[in-house]
């Protein structure tokens, strides 16, 4: 089976593009020509002309490529992506400690343990404002809600046990769920 012939408009465009790219480093030059050639391959003359029109003037593409590689002449360091060293509050161990305090801090040091977790949460850029608000508001809200529901349901010693159980266990369970979700979300954003 013979390969379909390349339309003249494609051949001419690729040849002109290659000429215009003279002086551009080989890898970039070949990448551009090959990337465009593979897109134009198999198209008929009309479809190819339409694609070529959207691409633009070979001289413009070559000028852009030349401008893009120019910074390399000043040395590889000038083009290297530089990211500042991670802050403490951006590291993975920080995520683990924060999540542990949110989930179980209240059991270790009543109230203060959970508050410490919330403070660490707000001090870190790893979580969004909404995530921080949810972690801060939802557990107390769950406690108040359960307390209210059980208080309205009846009275007596057994009911006060239920209130205590609901008011404590509810917020703790909410904090555990939130701690797990937030630590999973922050894990990918954190730096090792």
């Amino acid at each position: 089976m013979t390969k379909p012939s390349i339309p003249g408009v494609v051949r001419d465009y690729l040849a002109e593009l290659d000429r215009e790219l003279a002086g551009v480093p080989g890898e970039v030059r070949q990448g551009i020509v090959a990337g465009i050639a593979e897109e134009l391959e198999g198209l008929d003359a009309s479809a190819a002309a339409s694609r070529i029109e959207s691409l633009g003037d070979p001289a413009f593409i070559a000028a852009e490529a030349r401008a893009g590689v120019a910074p390399r002449s000043t040395g590889p360091k000038s083009t290297k992506l530089v990211v500042a060293p991670p802050r403490v509050s951006e590291q993975r161990w920080y995520v683990v400690v924060t999540a542990a305090l949110l989930e179980f801090g209240v059991l270790v040091v009543p109230l203060a343990g959970w508050v410490a977790g919330i403070m660490m949460l707000w001090a870190s850029p790893l979580w969004t404002r909404n995530e921080k608000l949810i972690a801060t508001i939802v557990p107390p809200a769950v406690g108040v809600l359960l307390f209210g529901i059980l208080a309205l349901a009846g009275s007596g010693l057994a009911m006060w046990h239920a209130l205590l159980f609901g008011g404590l266990v509810g917020p703790i369970l909410a904090s555990i769920v939130i701690g797990i979700v937030l630590s999973r979300r922050a894990w990918g954003r954190a730096r090792t």
Binding site: V28, G31, F60, I61, E64, A65, G68
Partner: peptide, 11 residues
């Protein structure tokens, strides 16, 4: 601006 800008960056 164009595909010409892309390949140096990819490189």
């Amino acid at each position: 601006a164009s595909i010409g800008t892309l390949y140096p960056i990819l490189g």
